[in-house]
Nucleic acid binder design. Structure first.
Lengths: 131, 131
DNA sequence: GCTTGACTTCGAGTGCACTCCAAGGCGCAC
DNA sequence: GTGCGCCTTGGAGTGCACTCGAAGTCAAGC
C-alpha cells in the first residue's frame, strides 16, 4: 500500500478493483479475455500496475457491460480501438447499434415496470381493506 | 389446429408459446420448475391445454423475468399466490422490493447510456472531420 | 393402415460470465 | 528468518436460464 504514491499514479489490482467496482478475479479475467487494450504493466515483482488510462478504459467497458453488451462484443470494440486510427466509423457503428438496443430495452423495461406498478396498486388496495 | 375453437378457448403449447413469446421448451421448463400456479390441464391425449388464466399468469411472469427477477423469486411469488388468500402483504412486499430494484437499475442504465451517447458524440465529430 | 407432425417425458447439454482453487513468489513486520 | 498478506498462473468449478435430444404416443389425412 505504501507503493501507492508512485511518480505517476499506478494502482495495484486490489486498488483497481476498488476503483472500478470489479473484483480482482474479474479484472484478471477481462485481461485474459482480451477486453483490455494491452496487457497491464507489471512491477518488477510481476504484480500488475494499473495506469489511469487502464482504469478509464475499464470504467468504459463496465458501462458497456452494465448496459448489457456481451463480453464478445466488448472484445470486438477493444480490438477496434487497439487497431488504432482509421476504424472510427466501425467503432461508431458498434456503439450506435448498442445504444439503440439499450434504448429499446429501457423502453420495454419501463413498460413492464408500469404493469408491475399497476399490480402493486391492486395489492395495496387489498391490504388496506384488510387492515 | 382445428381443435383451437373449443367451448372455452384453450391453447395448445405451440399456441401458448405464440401468445406469450416464449418457446414450448421454456413453457414446459417453467411448469416443471414450479413457476406456474398449477399443472396445466391436459387433453385426453396428454397434450397440455392452456387456459386464458394460464396465459395471463405466464404474461405476468414474463414481465417479472423481463425486468430481471430471477426464476427462484418468481417461484416464491407463485408459491404465495398458490397458497391463496391471506398473504397479500407478503406478495406486495416482494413486488415492491422488485419494483425498487428495477427503478434503480433503470436509473443506472440511463446514466451509463448517457455516458455512451457522449462517446458516440465524440466519434461522430471525428468521422465527420475525416469525411 | 401407414405416414406425418405435433405433442409427451426425462435427462443431458449449452452459453455466458464470472468465481474459485492450488501451488507458489515476493517483500515487509516482528 | 519466519510468518503474513497480497500477488501470480492455469485450469477447474459454479449458477443461471434455458435449450436440445432421444424415444415414444396420439390423432388426422391420404
Amino acid at each position: 500500500m505504501s507503493v501507492a504514491e508512485s511518480v505517476e499514479t499506478s494502482l495495484s489490482i486490489a486498488e483497481a478493483a476498488d476503483a472500478t467496482g470489479l473484483t480482482t478475479h474479474t479484472l484478471r479475467y477481462y485481461e485474459r479475455d482480451g477486453l483490455l487494450l494491452d496487457a497491464v504493466d507489471r512491477a518488477s515483482s510481476g504484480h500488475r500496475r494499473y495506469s489511469e488510462d487502464d482504469v478509464g478504459w475499464i470504467r468504459m467497458i463496465t458501462r458497456l457491460r452494465a448496459t448489457g453488451m456481451p463480453i464478445r462484443e466488448v472484445r470486438q470494440y477493444a480490438d477496434l480501438v487497439r487497431a488504432g486510427d482509421g476504424n472510427e466509423a466501425e467503432r461508431l457503428q458498434l456503439l450506435v447499434a448498442h445504444r439503440d438496443r439499450v434504448r429499446q430495452q429501457l423502453a420495454e423495461v419501463a413498460t413492464h415496470l408500469e404493469a408491475i406498478e399497476l399490480k402493486i396498486g391492486l395489492y395495496e388496495r387489498t391490504t388496506c381493506t384488510l387492515t
